[in-house]
Amino acid sequence: MTGAIIEVSGVSKSFGGVRANADISMSVEKGGITGLIGPNGSGKTTLFNSIVGYHPIDSGSIRFANREISGMAVPEIARLGLLRTFQQTRIYGAMNCVENMLVSLPHRKMSIRDAFRRNSTEDRERAETLLEFVGLYRKRLLRAGSLSFGQQKLLEFAMALMNEPEALLLDEPTAGINPTLINGLIDRLRLANAEFGITLFIIEHNMRVIMNMADTIYCLAHGRMLASGAPEEIQHDQRVVNAYLGAH
């Protein structure tokens, strides 16, 4: 079954005099992997922030699973099953990895009474399985803040999976990760998409990564939608090449 899970239409966002996003329209196919590329400062993260409700948009509409979400607050949107990871990785530094995972259990499925319970054995097993999945099992009892940047990124990814989102927005998942680990990460992202059925929407600067993974790619430049299409089309689009080389 396919169809758009995230629909962005006519979204604009300015910060003072800077138009970070101008009349952006795009959609993310349910169950697919969609990429978002563009030079630095082209408005990719702003678009992500607008989608997850981090700041109000100036105009336009954002729909998630056929529901208008542009006026909703961050935690509300997250509880609908639309989750994001951060470019500057965010984890709970003073808690260990297992605790980080357990606190990421989906709160949309949690009643007040559930909040006053302890985590079940199944929850713990799932946390450990997912930590194993990203290769952090042996470090699971260490403080998350003591992990390396790349490991924290993997942990953040595992936490997102623990939350069982419908769709996951990843802001530069491979940035700062050791090149030899990148292939492993690509495999895991693909697995998360194929096996857990999570729709992925990825900002990525590493062209090799995004061209390999995405079904559809959108390219932003100067806050506007420059091009969209399949990876091969984007790769050969002269406007995209110019944007990256600074001729735009």
């Binding site: 997250a78 965010r90 984890i91 606190v103």
Partner: peptide
């Protein structure tokens, strides 16, 4: 209290409230 999910959630707020919000914690 600190052994329940509630305790973990308030620890999460301490460590990174913005992240806690982004993960859907009330």
């Amino acid at each position: 209290l600190y052994s329940t999910r509630f305790g973990a959630a308030i620890n999460a707020i301490r460590d990174d409230e913005e992240k806690a919000e982004a993960m859907g914690i009330h």
